[in-house]
Nucleic acid binder design. Structure first.
Lengths: 243, 243
DNA sequence: TGAATTACAGACCGTCGGTCGGTATGGTAG
DNA sequence: CTACCATACCGACCGACGGTCTGTAATTCA
């Protein structure tokens, strides 16, 4: 094979791109290194020039995901006009807005991420993301305690609970997606909507707020997202998400 | 090697035992099938006579764990003299009692289960355990709603939260264990104790109970467990996991 | 322009999970 | 007791895997 030389930074990103596609479609274990380098059009020597192991590739990929997720909420973090409750609500509903807007690609990525063969990949991403998000949440909660909006004795603990709820929501979503028939989907949507309401009230009470303060998503948003997803996958059955 | 024939049931359990040891000490991925069959003193043919794949071995092991965990709480489930709150409290503090009593073995198992290389194993166990425990929790919560002890509109959701809290506790424990020095340990114990209090109050409020109704563990129990563990491992300073 | 460094190529290696043809064993029917 | 058969078990073998190594083309800089 001819020798092709590219800017190292570009090559690295390219490898990450192809790895992402393959890891998400086939799972980290099942996608072999040979698959990755074949897809990227790169020799083994080149790969091991950029990453010390397959594991390191996974790690780098997880980091990239986490950085992207963090970038998606920077505006909410930076906005000086927001009080702690607004900021928290903004963070909680951020993924929602993003998902509705960029529905098609984001959702294929999203639903593949929850397939069981992607457990390891998902866990790594989550680890990296948690490490980034936790301090942000703690800071917001601390501010809320100072100006007496929130009331709790364990900001770190509450931050953990918030992230747990976020993940658990996704878990319920995953189950909803897995269901086949329209009837299944309808039930799943109903359950998910109820679950979101529960999480809202739970956070209200944990933070010492009046019921209805925390808003993860307005009523009906679950249905909006899910049906949007359904329409998309109706046209073309599982488009390849090439990033 | 000579041909040794044992009762199939016994052989199967034997294989599970050796797999458990190796998977826990080295992790599911790192422990090879050859390791398992060498440890069990069995040929490859024999292994594949009992299990269709390495994956199936993992599954069977997770099932066994789940069944054991379920058996450990059967008395609480069956006790007709308990009201829903007692039963819930009993379930939540069960692992505690069991862990203090059978401290040494249970704890080595417990802490190895949270090592990162055991992610897959742990997840499988959790999946199987959740499937068993969730219906029990839902039933208890439903009873509590009927006799107006509890107040919530989503019993399944609350059951999920309870299990999440249980797992999250273990996660904090894992971090505590990971910490090296005594000072680290002291901080971790403090944090964990605080976290348990938070989960108790959170569940109180989610279930519409007065603060202080849910008791996961009495104050000081974390310290009891952790120091018991420390004494045990004090004799030998961090044995190299000879991978 | 030439030496050093970087970016790549691909043959090769040990080990992995899994397969397969074969053999010993225990139960059972004649 | 014997013939037979299903079951329990053995271990050589296989393709594919992650990772290593030697070597070479391109780039950089003195």
């Amino acid at each position: 094979m001819p020798r092709v030389i590219k800017h190292p930074e570009f090559r690295r990103e390219e490898l990450l791109d192809h790895a992402q596609t393959l890891f998400l479609t086939q799972g980290y274990d099942k996608a072999s290194l040979n698959d990755v380098i074949a897809s990227a059009g790169v020799s083994k020597g080149a790969f091991y020039h950029y990453f010390p192991s397959k594991e390191a590739l996974l790690e780098a990929l997880a980091d990239r995901f986490a950085r992207q997720a963090l970038a998606g909420v920077q505006d909410i973090i930076d906005d000086p006009g927001l009080d702690p409750l607004d900021r928290l609500n903004g963070l909680l509903s951020q993924s929602r807005r993003a998902k509705i807007e960029t529905a098609p690609e984001a959702w294929t990525l999203f639903e593949t991420m929850f397939r069981p063969e992607n457990l390891v990949l998902f866990h790594r991403i989550n680890l990296a993301a948690s490490a980034s998000f936790s301090p942000l949440l703690v800071k917001i909660i601390r501010q809320g305690i100072e100006d007496t909006t929130f009331r709790t004795f364990d900001p770190e603990g509450v931050a953990d609970i918030v992230m747990q709820f976020g993940m658990a929501t996704h878990d319920v979503v995953a189950k909803a997606i897995a269901g086949g028939s329209d009837a299944d989907m309808e039930i799943a949507i109903e359950a998910l909507e109820k679950r979101v309401r529960l999480y809202e009230i739970a956070l209200d009470r944990i933070l010492g707020l009046p019921d209805g303060s925390i808003r993860i998503g307005e009523p009906g948003y679950v249905r909006t997202v899910m049906t949007a997803r359904q329409r998309k996958s109706a046209g073309k059955a599982l488009a390849k998400p090439d990033i």
